[in-house]
Design a protein around this nucleic acid. Sequence first.
RNA 1: GCCGGAGUGGCGAAAUGGCAGACGCGAUUGACUCAAAAUCAAUUGUCCGCAAGGGCGUGUGGGUUCGACUCCCACCUCCGGCACCA
Length: 931
Amino acid sequence: MADKYTPQTIETKWQRRWDDDKLYRSTVDWNKPKHYALTMLPYPSGDLHIGHWFAMTPSDARARYMRMKGYNVMFPMGFDAFGLPAENAAVQRNIHPKTWTYANMERMRKQLRSMGAMFDWEREAVSCDPSYYKWTEWFFKIFYDNDLAYRGEALVNWSPTLQTVLANEQVIDGKDERTGQPVVQKLMTQWFFRYRRYADELLDFSKMDWPEPVKIMQENWIGRSEGARIIFKTEAGDPIEVFTTRPDTVWGATFMVLAPEHPLVAKITTNAQRKDINAYVERVARETELERTAEDREKTGIFTGGYAINPVNQARIPIWIADYVLISYGTGAIMAVPSGDQRDFEFARKFGLEIVPVVQPDDQPALDGETMEAAWDGAGVMINSGPLNGIRANGEKGRKNPSIAAAIDHLEALSAGKEAVNYRLRDWLISRQRYWGSPIPIIHCADGTLEAVPDSQLPVVLPDDVEFMPTGRSPLTYYEPFLNTVDSEGRPAKRETDTMDTFMCSSWYHLRYLSPKYDRAPFDPEEAAYWLPVDTYTGGAEHATMHLLYTRWFNKAIRDLEVFDNAREIAAGHGRAVDGLFDEPMLQMRNQGQILGEERDGDVVVASGRVDGNKLFADYVEVIERDQAETIRGQKPDAVVGQIKKRTENLLQIDDGGDNLRTVEVVAGATVVIPSIPGENNVNQLRQHLDVQRMSKSKGNVVNPDELVAQYGADTVRAYLMFGFDWSKGGPWNSQQISGVVRWINDIWEICTAEPPQGAGDPDTERMIERRMHQTIAKVGEGLESFSFNTTIAALMAFRNDLKAAIRDDKLSEAAWRDALKQMLLLMAPIAPHITEELWEHLGFPYSIHQQSWPVYDAEKAKSETTTLVIMKNGKPVGHIEVPVDIEAEAAQQAALASDAAKRFLNGGKAKKVVFVPGRNGMEPKVNIVV
RNA sequence: GCCGGAGUGGCGAAAUGGCAGACGCGAUUGACUCAAAAUCAAUUGUCCGCAAGGGCGUGUGGGUUCGACUCCCACCUCCGGCACCA
């Protein structure tokens, strides 16, 4: 008997060997077809969790498979290292974001190595490294120089208490999560990219093999609509532009609604209405966009006192403001046609505004604005619409609808409007009022003009020696050495203190991987010419409309700025077809689901200390039994007692039984008592409540892959993640079900390390094993290609079962045994890279298994001679008979009708119909007898 | 609310419109053992039946089809996203 299976020693041994031999170093080789496999890079939150393994190891298995199929495969890894959590650590634990981030990356690199993935670490890219963000800044500059970057106004979450901008995540129920103080929406001048300029090209998915839902979501996100822009005028003559998809209904526009933030609101508002208007504007500033646009909500609004003139019929119509009109969509103003739009209808009914029907639906009594019960946006004939009367509204969009075409022509003749396309998509707001992000290389000169930092001075480096204020305000705004600079003339000037959205960094990381140390351009064109575009991209579907759309925009923008031109020329020189080669960054995209954990209650605690406003600064926190909460609450009225619903660093949100959660900040040096955890306790050991827990960086994670690897080995963890879930779906973690995979891996070890069989072998069994072998080759290959990892492993397990039985019964010769093991190890190599390498060596095959070719499927060998014919009665199986595989319809039908099963239910009677279904793709043939 | 997705045994799941539950977990029985674990052998959707056999079954209700987990319509529940978490 050979050695016991000890994954811990085997795995580190081979990882070191592969490293030493640079087995996964991917270099340009024009003699081989390339495959760029990419999986979304992690945020360095501190610890790799099982979700990272779930995302990365199946992708690795597939990349390894492609390699064995003969491709030159590049599979890089890096870190998306800028972002909010690092600043939270700085504010709450007084650790510099850089220190925190780099320490986390160091730990995560080790953990990533334990996966045994084929990452090429020489290609590692780290977005917070100056050598990386130099080029992020450079990209900003070329956008700026080419009118793709501009300054505009946008709403931010503003905490008047902290005088700081907050992330959406930091706002809970309209309040700042740290202080519990209200947050308002405030307009601020910020940087944008012209995202919308590419809206139409982004709607073209023809060059991409992406999941249908992702494409649909992107299409809806972009939200292209055809219609017209129409200019209304106030009585004072100020123009109010609106966009509408139904310009034909303009005769029914009986009032206008402006977004409360619309610049004309102050001017239009009459003195009598001013007080109400101001109060309403203030109220709306506290609402989120989601709340404002929820269609099930009771409409609210206020009359400004002002009137506009309808350009087609000169009607004097009141101007209102309402929260359901957003300043960020369209023009921030609408013409309200209550007879044709349900939201406008509800608004008009609620506030007693006039309703004029303009489209008369067919076969219905004449509409009356006084009595109609809902808006009509369907087909019909135009009425009450001057020159449009009698024209058909056919329900189509844009000019395909005669009434819309007529309306556009009429408006254009009047110079009151123009045909137009509108997008729901907004330009990309890239400004963040934060420290830990890529600086924006812009200088504000004393005279108010802007200058880009010269290329020679890039990157603008984030200063290290800054202090973080507890407000969370970016130190860049008050750190003088950074702030003060000079312009190109040497005059004193100020640096831009906004940094860039981290989506900017992650929009081009796949390019930095090409040549992370290259310093003459963002990437080496020689590498790009060979490797681009990404062939297979894997990641979560939660990125469907943001990251995945930003990265497409980025790619198209830099393509048009000639960033790929050198690479294109080199590629053409090597005979690659370069037409449209750089139009899309990722050709194939597949989503994996998320690994969830079981629902878990948070600790119930008693927290006491100093109360400040709604917030408790606790210097003492003790975990108590759930049933004690009520009693202790009575005894200690000043303390906060309840379950921890959320914890971010040292900030707790506690459910104390009241209507709102209580915020508790555990001060530095506080005493934390957790009876179930011996020794001294700290705030990080407090457990928060987790609803069918989603494992993400912002939450504590119960499943630690390191422990699993220590217990079972990386190969088993990899295989379990591939076997136990539908990869596209994910699901809750289950620690029990891993044992099936443990048994499988152990079986493989025992089969391969056993003494070879001595017998002569049984030809029938050997033929059966050969057949199953080839069926398995087909299934494993198909499974890996289609990301059906669970069926891949199921096929390998089934083969193991056959093989075990044949060995047990001593039906295999040594040659047949050896061939079966060889093929099986090759098929398993992408999934379990370490054990297969070890057993490959043990069986005397040459190093490395990962440099071997994929077994070749032979359809003839996979075929069997007979098959089961399924006999069905009205579509339900009632019996089986053995028939030759290639049986024809006639013979099958006769055999079926003659079978015992058919005789039983036919009773000598006649079948109404007999349907033959030939056996395809390994499925049995069927005969359906209809009676 | 809007957009997208998912609902199948006790559990994870499988199934180009063609035998629903492959492959596993768990459970039950047996073998080995003083015993347990491990391992091996067998059973395992559910109901009726001694059995042969039959009825019912893929969230709910309808429809298309010789045949529906799969396609269509309506609904329910859960998950992801909604532009400053990444």
